[in-house]
Design a binder for these strands. Structure first.
Lengths: 309, 309
DNA sequence: TTAATAGTGTCTATGAGACATTATTCT
DNA sequence: AGAATAATGTCTCATAGACACTATTAA
């Protein structure tokens, strides 16, 4: 094992010998003109919104929605992409993410989580771009979309995922799993879609996983892959954290909360068990819903003492 | 909401108007000479190794160990840092991580997981450096450390974490949690340490968390913070995935596996419950340990059909 | 009255924690 | 024999799923 890495023969270390003081070193240090990748942030802004009611008595069917931007220039002109932008030298990654969020949604102070950093060499046809993706969850009640802004190129897309095929192969020292997942996005006018292949392999204790875009319709860059990754993360986190509360308004009914869990996890839940499970995470208020052709529903709010994530 | 982001007034888009074809655009595209951050990967290579036996009958006490490199140049000369290095233009982030891993440990084909990307503006005193951290888990039986390489500057450090203080404050619309965590690393000769402050705040559904280095002894850059983050991730993943198996050799005793769980989670487990829990993840072999002054222990191997991560 | 949702009670199966008990080895 | 670890049996308690049942509203 040798002392490689930061300390030998690397771009930043051309002045990095030991016979000057650290202060001298930093004063004379010059970042040099080595080629560097560009760094961007990509935002996955999710919300849960209700679509039209079919019947005065029936509840509106909420759905998971994702914010996307139509590209006005090359490459992928006219396709839809995740909101995002370049990270400047004066801001941290999270600052850049929050800046994008404010720009696109006008919202500050919302749930933001770093997801994954995408670093494939050819992921952007222009030049080498490394993208750090962030997931933001917003409460739909706060959203003011396209207020007056005519023909804006930002829109919410209803997100759906479907498992097309799963192949599982178990051999002596491991297994491989191969899934094809179909992603569908629609905003009422346009329908975007992609088929992503997710491969996982375990060989002894060696594990690898990879994602590939097999087909894509209307979605720019590798963003369809990023979406599938984000949906997977969201689905897994909803099981063992209280992340879903970030999609709820100040007060909400337990049925609405349950719907959010069901939409994200893709599973139907039983009301009794669900209520028991989240009982300690909420506090009841004295308010109720009404005017709905059926029994009113009590409104709850978050319990600040709730489970730590 | 406006069409910001990738498509307007950003470095890569100075030629990005719509009146040429995408092919023309890409042919004339020039990445330009905008200032860009440097991008590195930092590796957290963990293993579990046994230290000396105190008694011929007692089992050796295994401990969690982390690979570190002593810096030979400025800045932080003489301090210990995570192995890592710059990402070149021709390799993906994961390729860079695997390359570092091979360089430092000689190991290929081991568990590797992207952890988090650190992008604070001032995290490196030389210039803006964004670092993507990866966690690698290796089975100690495979390790050949410093084979013949005299006075190498790479070494394994035993890692320990201690909670110094926890303050919890609950107010009407949220709560804050503030913890001070002490990190201690020792390789037998040197002892490194740091005190990290971890703050979490929830206000309504708005959540933020931050980590700060309060004290640091012998650890370069913000690497103490990265370690605390990695330990937290490891601890949480050991609870709900089979990640711990990546630290085990081909065959192992259930007691050894349990020890790994205990070391990472920081909790004592009861053998009966532990064995029930992992029963389906392992397959028994016909081999046993021996020569140990007590009942031999059956060796197990991974069940390739085990739980999906 | 009826359609629809809101909300509760309770049975059962499952799994985890606690702890006692038996098994086996080498010195 | 004795010290040490290996391995299992079983009691209890907490929790999740299933499902039946009651409650309440507006048209």
């Amino acid at each position: 094992m040798t002392n490689e890495g930061y300390s030998e023969g690397r771009p930043l270390d051309h002045l990095n010998h030991g016979n000057i003081s650290e202060q001298q070193f930093l004063e004379t240090y010059n970042a040099g003109d080595y080629e560097r990748p560009s760094v961007t942030v990509d935002m996955l802004v999710f919300t849960i919104r209700s679509e039209a009611q079919s019947n005065y008595r029936k509840l509106a069917e909420p759905a998971l929605q994702l914010l996307m931007i139509r590209r006005g220039g090359h490459p992928y002109m006219g396709k839809w992409a995740l909101p995002g932008g370049f990270v400047s030298m004066q801001e941290s990654l999270e600052d850049a993410a929050r800046r994008e969020l404010v720009t696109e949604t006008g919202l500050d102070d919302i749930y933001l989580e770093q997801l994954y950093t995408w670093g494939d060499v050819q992921r952007d046809p222009r030049t080498r771009v490394i993208s750090c993706s962030y997931m933001a969850l917003v409460d739909s009640s706060e959203l003011e979309l396209e207020a007056g802004d005519d023909a804006s190129d930002a829109d919410w897309f209803r997100v759906e995922q479907r498992l097309l095929e799963e192949k599982r192969h178990i051999h002596e020292r491991g297994r491989t799993t191969e899934r094809r997942v179909q992603l569908t996005l629609s905003n009422g006018t346009e329908e975007l879609s992609a088929v992503i292949e997710v491969k996982e392999a375990v060989e002894g204790s060696v594990r690898s996983s990879s994602m590939n875009i097999l087909e894509v319709e209307g979605i720019a860059f590798d963003h369809a892959k990023i979406m599938v990754y984000a949906l997977e993360r969201l689905r897994s986190k909803v099981e063992y954290t209280d992340i879903a509360f970030n999609l709820m308004p100040e007060t909400f009914t337990l049925t609405a909360l349950q719907k959010v869990y069901e939409i994200i996890s893709g599973k139907k839940l039983l009301a009794a068990a669900f209520r028991r499970k989240i009982a300690d995470w909420v506090i009841e208020t004295e308010e109720f819903t009404g005017n709905a052709g059926h029994r009113p529903s009590r409104l709850y709010r978050l319990n600040p003492e709730r489970m730590t994530t």
